[in-house]
Design a protein around this nucleic acid. Structure first.
Lengths: 337, 337
DNA sequence: GCGCATCACTGAACCGGGTAAGTTGTGGGA
DNA sequence: TCCCACAACTTACCCGGTTCAGTGATGCGC
């Protein structure tokens, strides 16, 4: 089955290729009558512009790239990325941009993928996640002049726009809530300490604990996986000065923490309160359902996609804060016994 | 920053564009010495072939497409798709094929996406999941002559190759295991009844139950979400003739079922044994960890990608069965009280 | 020494859209 | 009546690879 081209349309409409191109792209240079005729022929024969030809003639590839840099076993379970992806899609699909995905193991590989994509002209821009301090990807993107949007921050990303959510406000709300319930010994199991938003959260957590007079606020670093979440939880719960509440930096670790508590015969929330950062269906799935810091990840992704498309189209893009994070209390938090 | 092209390489090497193309693609027509010179220049200036130009000149787009047709809230949490994706990637990345993703709401939209991709020459082939009886996508793919591989089956997909895992063998193993533990009343909570592999599993489940003399084997249809998993579990557990073991068609519903049991004060595995189909980190995350029917989803995805690439390259592809499914006993199964 | 095959390359035509520059045809104003 | 402006096109070239038909030069057998 031969794919229809603008030449086919031109032949049937009795005009030149150029006229068809103008008509299809809403450019001036054709009469309204001709434009209508051309559009209806295009519709009739099911015409879709060859994306390669379009991309080749200086225009856009009409695709954006996303690299996923997580170990495979975590990728599957963490709802975060899929939430983001479905948010991107909602926005990209509408403007018929495609999303190109690549799973990588290290930031170095990520840089290589960016370079290749750029060289191949495969994409018009990229979405950058899991930003670190002095992230090696930033200078490369600047060098390639590849439009980009950074998810996570705030931090120093030079001219590349960022979008972030109010981590400090969120953790303040969570700690205040736990304190209001009567908790004094609150611990936190964090994500990878190299990540910028982990650092921001840690700073904020320590700040609010000091300001509320909690002196033994402890953050144990982990890596978002269930294994490390369990390990960190065990470490916290076998100590003498056990916390009565733990805040986890993602849902997976929180669920793992809940399992450890149950396994050790502790009652949740009686003996231990649990708060998960980033709500997801996972949190409501377990028993008791987990109190969580919720934000609309899909909307977050959609906003990021919009900003990226703006950056691609040359609109000046500033740093933006995404929608608010709020605490969703569920069964995993209560006053300590 | 200007992207290097083969013309740049040609100029520096003092040969024609054509010679460079032959050299880079390992075609005959250039001497070994010239080829080496050209390759080293390409390396030096960081050349990457423009994918649009390549795709335009009759060659491949070097990309494959995957549509995800699940409600957004399920997409995020079900590890299955991400497992598949990371498997595809492992294979595709090696041959520098890109993966293009699109989230859709209905099979009709999926068909439209296929048509658009094909018209735009954006992809060389597609991976089709969640196959149904008389699936509307099959005739469209045949019509477009778009290379494809169907994940799931076996079933009638005409000339399009399929890859599936041994569902019948798996469920037989699970039921035999539960019977050996002493269970007589075994129920199952299935995925959407419209899906081909749900039907295959249901048929096999009923078959093995009859052959083992279990007369009240009940399958309650659900849709893979936690909500429906909970609902189905409640329905099973409030009846008079309660099952002592439940097999769930995915991990999410199994975890939801576990939560319902705990909420109702039932002990797992004392009062109720639980088996999850498709193992994932989620199963080991909860307490007690779930006995599961494990298969290497990532390897499954990798194999599917290989088959698809074969189909794209015109190699005859037959239907294949993926690696074995095996039972991984964990803490959620025990003899009934 | 001649003819012929082979090698190593060149030149040019494609692929299918985008777009600048050129060409009509028409109407209006002076 | 002539000139000019403008709409409504057409023509031709561009993007950057791939590929096929040619073209010298070389080697080899007889």
């Amino acid at each position: 089955m031969k794919r229809p081209t603008i030449a086919d349309i031109a032949r049937r409409a009795g005009v030149s290729k150029g006229a068809v191109s103008y008509a299809l792209n809403g450019q001036p240079g054709v009469s309204e009558a001709t434009r209508k005729r051309i559009l209806s022929i295009a519709q009739e024969i099911g015409f879709n512009a060859n994306s390669a030809a379009r991309a080749l003639s200086g225009a856009r590839a009409r695709a954006v790239g996303l690299t996923l840099c997580r170990p495979a076993r975590l990728l599957g379970i963490e709802p975060w990325f899929m939430g983001l992806i479905s948010g991107f899609e909602a926005e990209l699909g509408e403007r018929s941009y495609a999303l190109t995905l690549q799973v990588v193991a290290t930031p170095e590989q990520e840089v290589e993928v960016y370079r290749r994509w750029w060289g191949e002209r495969r994409i018009d821009g990229v979405i950058v996640t899991d930003i670190r301090e002095n992230d090696i990807r930033i200078p490369v993107l600047q060098d390639l002049q590849l439009p980009a949007i950074v998810i996570g921050g705030p931090g120093d990303t030079g001219p590349i726009a960022q979008i972030w959510s109010d981590d400090a406000g969120a953790i303040t709300e969570a700690v205040r809530y736990l304190v209001a319930l009567g908790h004094h010994r609150i611990a936190r199991v964090s994500g990878p300490p190299g990540l910028l938003h982990t650092q921001n959260r840690t700073k904020a957590f320590e700040g609010v604990c000091v300001s509320l007079g909690l002196d033994n606020a402890l953050t144990i670093p982990a890596d978002y996986t269930g294994e490390e979440g369990s390990r960190a939880t065990r470490r916290l719960l076998i100590g003498g000065d056990k916390p009565t509440a733990i805040i986890y930096d993602n849902d997976v670790m929180a669920v793992a923490g809940l399992a450890v508590a149950q396994e050790m015969g502790l009652s949740v929330p009686g003996d231990l309160s649990i708060v998960a950062w980033d709500d997801s269906p996972l949190c409501s799935l377990v028993h008791p359902p987990l109190t969580a810091l919720s934000r609309d990840i899909s909307a977050y992704g959609a906003q990021a996609a919009r900003e990226l498309l703006n950056a691609i189209n040359g609109t000046k893009v500033g740093n933006v804060e995404a929608g608010r994070v709020h605490l969703t209390p569920r069964g995993s938090t209560a006053p300590p016994r």
